[in-house]
Design a protein around this nucleic acid. Structure first.
Lengths: 197, 197
DNA sequence: AACTTGACATACGAGATGTATGCGAGATAT
DNA sequence: ATATCTCGCATACATCTCGTATGTCAAGTT
């Protein structure tokens, strides 16, 4: 098989992102060495700086990938629900559970915002927020939710969910705390309902 | 006046924390140079490593100070309200407004969690969370809020508030977005009420 | 088949952190 | 009051990391 140049380049990008994802998750962004990271996949920093510009660029690529994965999963879970409202609750619970993954926490929730700034201004647009915002907009249009600002509601909901996850993960007994967090989250979300149950 | 040794030591600690607060806010944690920082107050890194152990220790001291200030302010504002429930709403709005301060954002919301880990496991105990938790507990005891887990509710509320602030600050027109965020926050909080209004 | 391009490797320079050692002014004891 | 000791801070050093500038060789082009 003749490997074309752009093929190997694409492969290398994938390799580097995968290696970075591991390294950033394990050591944290600042402690992750670019020399080690690149050597692990048989390359050098030359490849890295050529493809991603700098260390931040690599993190941005990793975050973009993870954010996309998370948004897709949340959307899928939300779509399986009986109605849109149940879908929103399911989405929130899904975010909480996804954020229990140490990789997600370290990279997307902690280092991501610190290095790249607030998620709403990420280059990748933050797909997670978009998904939630769309769901909220639909519910407002259906007259199920109060006519609050959709973006504000989405931000607050995802902020609450992701913060809950950080708390759960840091607790001594995550499995016992998880249901309480989900319960509290659903209570909060119910505050957006036009007609409380 | 004869300066006792522990006096000058205390003064130096105060100076270093003040300088660090400025430097961390302006450059961010990782880009802040400890050489510059200490030189600004007429000291060297020797003083720093003797007093705070390492760079992280200095950040922890700064975060502790800011967190304490924020908690005191939130508590004071909450206490001025007509009743405990209005106090909770006022606390939330206070957090959102305080988090608009770039210094608070950069240090407490972005670098703090990334470097020190989740706020709930900070050495300083995170006074902000304690204040909110206490308020929630009181409201539950009074039968005003649903009997959800107080810590979970506090975490979610403060998470929502602080995330809202990050979003507001990153927006083009913070002053127009602020009221929408506060409105959405209060709608969410109302979800915790036992008897919806 | 010669030439050009560009993806990646190599080499270098500029800081930054943390530690180990040194010093000198306050604290202590006689 | 003098001598000794303590310890808070300064100084010097070793190590590591990022980003850039330059080199190189295979893939693409004509």
């Amino acid at each position: 098989m003749a490997k074309t140049r752009s093929e190997t380049m694409q492969e290398n990008r994938v390799k580097l992102i995968a290696a970075a994802r591991k390294a950033f998750a394990k050591k944290g962004y600042s402690a992750a060495s670019m020399d080690e990271l690149t050597a692990d996949v048989g390359l050098t920093r030359g490849a890295l700086y050529h493809n991603f510009g700098d260390k931040r660029g690599l993190l941005a690529a990793v975050v973009d990938q993870m954010d996309t994965e998370m948004a897709a999963r949340a959307q899928e879970i939300g779509a399986r629900a009986d109605d849109v409202w149940q879908g929103l609750l399911a989405e929130g619970a899904a975010y909480i559970e996804m954020a229990l993954d140490p990789e997600v926490q370290r990279i997307v929730l902690l280092d991501g915002p610190a290095v790249l700034g607030d998620p709403s201004q990420w280059p990748s647009q933050n797909s997670c927020l978009q998904v939630t915002k769309t769901t909220v907009e639909r519910l407002i249009a259906q007259g199920i939710l109060k006519p609050v600002d959709a973006e504000a509601a989405a931000r607050l909901l995802s902020g609450a969910a992701l913060n809950a996850a950080l708390w759960i993960a840091a607790s001594d007994n995550p499995q016992s705390v998880l249901p309480r967090a989900v319960e509290a989250f659903q209570a909060l979300a119910a505050g957006l309902l036009l007609k409380p149950v």
